[in-house]
Computed example of a mutant assay.
Amino acid sequence: MKNSMENVQNRRNQLVAELKQISSITVKDLADQLDVSEITVRRDLKALNDMGRVNWHHGVVEKVDDELSQGNSLRTKIEQLKDSIAAAVPSYITDNSTLFVNSSSLCWRAINQLAVKPLTIITNNIRATECVRHPETSIILTGGEVRYPKESLVGTVTIQLLETMQSDFTLIGCDGISAENGVTTQNIYETQVNSTMIQRTKQKVICVADYRKIGVSSNYHVADLSSVDVLITDSFANERVVRDFRHRGIEVIQVAN
């Protein structure tokens, strides 16, 4: 019988845990330690290498720090995942609708993808003015205090403007989304802005997050999981968590990598 995806993910997590203890190891030694075949280890390594969690070459596996966001290899892979997720967003937004968009980098990519549709986009992301757009699209900045280095607009002015509006859709990025703590962020200044966007949505809240954010809780609570209608992520996302989200009524889309 084939392993369930949950078992596969547990084995891959164990593989990464083994690598945290040493700097490098051969495929054969890993297979012996995990008591599985070399073919199985190679299949796991291909997936983990694609995710940027390990460096695998010439039969040797090298440790990759989970904080590798500064490393060129992982950064490139994550950027590619974000592009794939962003490219899926336009299918869930109707023409001529109004949408709130928060200041996440993934949402910024999605704004560029939404150039195929005429829209009214209301956002606290200053960089949205750099995005390509449909000739009939209006981009409205919320105003407020500029927070660097992210260049997001936050504070009382931002929230007051959002409270005078309603959107058809809200597109929200996050630092974590889990069943226990819902949508969370590590930026305290953006918490209430994101929460207000979600509360003022008439139709659907669409959350975009790569696999690193799925099942994770960050410092500050934005909204309960029940507030999310659609989650767009990638196929590396934890399958157990994805299955739980679906059971809770969230439409989860996993883009190919």
Results as ranks from 00 to 15, higher is better:
Asn72Trp: 10
Ser73Pro: 10
Ser73Phe: 00
Leu74Trp: 08
Arg75Tyr: 00
Thr76Tyr: 11
Thr76Trp: 12
Thr76Phe: 11
Gln80Ser: 13
Leu81Tyr: 14
Lys82Cys: 00
Lys82Gly: 08
Asp83Met: 15
Ser84Pro: 12
Ala86Val: 03
Ala87Gln: 14
Ala88Pro: 01
Val89Cys: 05
Val89His: 07
Ser91Cys: 09
Asp95Trp: 08
Asn96Cys: 06
Thr98Gln: 02
Leu99Met: 11
Leu99Val: 08
Phe100Lys: 14
Asn102Thr: 06
Asn102Pro: 05
Ser103Tyr: 05
Ser103Met: 06
Ser104Ile: 05
Ser105Cys: 01
Leu106Asn: 13
Leu106Gly: 07
Trp108Gly: 08
Trp108Cys: 00
Arg109Glu: 01
Ile111Gln: 07
Ile111Met: 09
Ile111Gly: 05
Asn112Cys: 02
Asn112His: 12
Lys117Trp: 06
Ile122Val: 13
Ile122Glu: 00
Ile122His: 02
Thr123Asp: 04
Thr123Lys: 05
Asn124Asp: 05
Arg127Asn: 13
Glu130Val: 09
Arg133Met: 06
Pro135Lys: 10
Pro135Leu: 06
Thr137Ile: 03
Leu141Lys: 01
Leu141Phe: 02
Leu141Met: 09
Glu145Ser: 11
Val146Cys: 03
Tyr148Pro: 04
Tyr148Glu: 11
Pro149Arg: 03
Lys150Asp: 00
Val154Lys: 05
Gly155Met: 04
Gly155Arg: 08
Gly155Trp: 07
Val157His: 02
Leu161Asp: 07
Thr164Phe: 00
Gln166Asp: 04
Gln166Thr: 15
Gln166Gly: 04
Asp168His: 13
Asp168Gly: 11
Phe169Glu: 02
Thr170Met: 07
Thr170Lys: 01
Leu171Asn: 08
Ile172Glu: 07
Cys174Gly: 07
Gly176Leu: 10
Ile177Glu: 07
Ser178Glu: 07
Ser178Phe: 09
Ala179Pro: 10
Asn181Tyr: 12
Gly182Trp: 11
Gly182Tyr: 10
Val183Trp: 02
Thr185Lys: 03
Gln186Cys: 11
Ile188Trp: 00
Ile188Gly: 03
Tyr189Pro: 03
Glu190Lys: 12
Glu190Asp: 14
Glu190Tyr: 05
Glu190Asn: 13
Thr191Val: 14
Val193Met: 06
Val193Ile: 12
Thr196Phe: 06
Met197Ile: 12
Met197Tyr: 04
Gln199Thr: 14
Gln199Asn: 15
Arg200His: 13
Lys202His: 12
Lys204Gly: 02
Val205Thr: 13
